[in-house]
């Protein structure tokens, strides 16, 4: 049809330029449309480099179709399990320790004498930095899990911010703590014996407990806090930054949103272990063994306590003539 118009144009001289322009534009557009129809603009659309937000993949429909893999699992766990497990584990641990305190009671050791110097100033500073981090992170974590009961809003929002700030403190203390305690925290044969008698905590009698500088319980806490801590930092960072791009995701065929879902699931389950052992650590140092907190304040541990609770360490010190 436009060819006919063209024929007309050549006949009529002195046609306004405007009309000619519109005609040319129309011709170009029509030709362009034919061109688009014949040649695919992009042969492999999926390989196109995407520079914007990866949060929802460039192909949103891919996310929607793959929702069943991780999305539904996250919803199922969050709706039915996370809150219940956190509540159950926390209450369970507290009840067990309350019963332990009432039935078996705390262990008391003589604090006379100079004691054994176990923690240098550096170690104490690192410990208390990590301790402050945990005191900030764990209660705020619980505040978010049970945000419904607290009514949400600014209170829980602030808790979320403090949760992130506490993490920074933990990151600071992480490397020195790992390096200074890595070797004494390695498992030994004593640990099996310790677990078999549950560290002597099930008897009122003062028994000699097989343990080096750290007993199996402390080691368990150390490794959960360190290896678990790395995972908690990593998964927490993913949830915190939310919108990031890891090239490696493409290699695993994983959408970014799925990675964050996996991170949230991991963070919750690991959080249960960390919270349970944190409460245990508090109970042991504050209540179960009277005065054991002193060693982390002054650096000196009661000789009597070392003799019974860390017998292998005591023997080693004696051999070296340090006592």
């Amino acid at each position: 049809m436009y060819h006919m118009a063209g024929v007309q144009l050549t006949k009529v001289k002195g046609l306004p330029m405007k009309k000619l322009f519109i005609f040319l534009l129309g011709a170009v557009l029509l030709n362009a449309r034919e061109f688009i129809g014949k040649v695919p603009l992009v042969e492999h659309a999926k390989e196109v480099h995407f520079t914007g937000s990866r949060l929802i993949s460039p192909e949103l429909l891919h996310n929607i179709l793959h929702y069943q893999t991780w999305g539904e699992l996250f919803v199922y766990l969050q709706v039915h399990w996370f809150r219940a497990l956190f509540f159950g584990i926390t209450v369970g641990v507290l009840v067990v320790f309350l019963l332990h305190y009432l039935i078996i009671g705390p262990k008391k050791f003589s604090h006379s004498g100079k004691g054994v110097f176990v923690y240098s100033v550096f170690k104490r500073v690192v410990h208390w930095t990590a301790a402050l981090a945990f005191v900030l992170v764990i209660p705020t974590g619980f505040m978010m899990i049970f945000g419904k009961e607290l009514g949400g809003g600014d209170l829980v929002l602030t808790a979320r911010y403090i949760h992130s700030i506490g993490t920074v403190l933990f990151i600071v203390s992480f490397i020195p703590m790992f390096l200074m305690w890595f070797i004494p925290m390695l498992p030994t044969l004593d640990d099996i014996k310790w677990f078999l008698m549950l560290g002597g905590y099930l008897t009122k009698k003062k028994v000699v407990v097989p343990a080096g500088q750290f007993n199996a319980g402390q080691k368990m806490w150390f490794w959960v806090a360190m290896l678990g801590g790395i995972v908690m930092i990593g998964t927490g960072a993913m949830m915190y930054f939310q919108d990031f791009h890891l090239a490696i995701l493409d290699r695993f065929g994983l959408d970014q949103i799925d990675l964050i879902r996996i991170a949230a699931i991991t963070h919750n389950f690991l959080g249960m272990a960390v919270a349970a052992l944190f409460i245990t650590h508090l109970y042991m140092s504050l209540f179960a063994i009277k005065g054991s907190l002193d060693s982390m304040i002054s650096g000196n541990k009661s000789e009597d306590e070392v003799k019974y609770m860390h017998s292998s360490f005591y023997k080693k010190l004696k051999k070296e003539g340090k006592i």
């Binding site: 949060l55 929802i56 949103l60 996310n63 929607i64 929702y67 999305g71 996250f74 919803v75 969050q78 978010m144 945000g147 009514g151 949400g152 809003g153 829980v156 929002l157 808790a159 979320r160 911010y161 949830m239 939310q242 949103i257 964050i260 879902r261 949230a264």
Partner: peptide, 23 residues
């Protein structure tokens, strides 16, 4: 009431929830 935790985004099949950086 919202605390901006992001759980709704993880749960949403359509990626609808978004989080402006205005905290």
């Amino acid at each position: 009431t919202c605390i901006g935790c992001g759980y709704c985004l993880y749960a949403c099949p359509f990626g609808a929830p978004q989080f402006p950086k205005d905290g």
